[in-house]
């Protein structure tokens, strides 16, 4: 999505920002502002500058300003993006439209109410369900997990709950009860984790009409995801897991990751030898 180098010259850019004040407006409206934009400026920096210089009542949500907290999700030039990760000059347009995330209630200006995202996330039980729950609360050692076992679900752990995927999903556009790409991908994250054996406990929340089968692989969620989580992939793998489980070819409780007792962990660390020197001192 980067522009060619001849369009990234610093210049004046017009911002069309969607405004909504719940205390005075019955519906949103668009306001326009102009700003001189230099190389490296993000949409978030532009919003701060607009608020300081032109529109002190402008409201949005942001925090880390470096793409890890997921707070600043907005609809920028017709795509859901993190404002702190969107370079203005690289958008390649002279007019930049900024709107709140779609498919969430709009609290004020660019602020979405992300409660639907969090509620759906909670319903899929986003925690490790182990055959021995006490091991989770009072661990006696470490879980043994090979690199392959870790990689089977690791990419789905990078979710920062920014909500861009639900804003992109066509099913979420009409169905308020659809679990959405985030919750379904997280359901797969826990199901595929070999420390977890909780598919049966999650089935009641997942194997519903508004579950993974209303995903039709439009792929917009994976396009929108700023962390490479690829929720569409997680949902298709979840469908495969559910189908295999329904014919009795699911994960067995006995295949859950074993625990290596703490004493053995300590012993392994003590026996650990450093690698051979690569720098020979004279």
């Amino acid at each position: 999505m980067t522009a060619s180098h001849k369009t990234i010259t610093p210049r004046e850019i017009t911002f069309r920002v969607r405004r909504f004040d719940p205390e005075t407006d019955s519906a949103p409206h668009w306001d326009s502002y102009t700003l001189n934009v230099t190389e490296g400026m993000t949409v978030l920096e532009a919003l701060h500058q607009l608020k300081a210089e032109k529109e002190p009542t402008l409201a949005w949500r942001s925090s880390c300003r470096m793409g890890v907290c997921g707070s600043c999700g907005m609809f920028i030039n017709d795509l859901p993006q993190l404002a702190c990760q969107t370079q203005l000059l690289h958008l390649g347009t002279d007019v930049v439209t900024v709107a709140p995330l779609l498919n969430y209630p709009n609290v004020k200006d660019l602020v979405p109410n992300l409660e639907p995202l969090i509620e759906k996330h909670v319903t899929i039980k986003p925690f490790i369900i182990h055959p021995n729950p006490q091991e989770i609360d009072e661990p006696t050692g470490e879980f043994i997990q090979s690199t392959e076992e870790r990689e089977a679900f690791s990419q789905f752990t990078y979710c920062i709950k920014c909500g861009l995927c639900l804003a992109a999903c066509p099913t979420v556009a009409t169905d308020p009860l659809f679990l959405g790409p985030q919750a379904l991908a997280q359901a797969y994250r826990y199901t595929a984790d070999n420390r977890d054996c909780g598919l049966k406990e999650r089935l009641e929340a997942i194997d519903i009409f508004h579950g993974p089968y209303q995903c039709h692989l439009a792929g917009a969620c994976s396009q929108a995801c700023p962390k490479g989580v690829d929720p569409a992939f997680g949902i298709q793998l979840l469908k495969r897991t559910l189908v295999l489980d329904s014919i009795g070819v699911g994960k067995k409780k006995s295949s859950v990751a074993k625990v290596r007792p703490l004493a053995d962990v300590v012993k392994a660390i003590e026996e650990f030898a450093p690698p051979p020197r690569t720098v020979v001192s004279n």
Partner: peptide
């Protein structure tokens, strides 16, 4: 009161600059 920002049926047709799988 928040403004309900759900796209509705329009969202099946166009909701942004997504790739052609959509």
């Amino acid at each position: 009161k928040s403004y309900p920002n759900r796209l509705g049926l329009k969202g099946w047709v166009y909701a942004g600059r997504y790739t052609f799988e959509r």
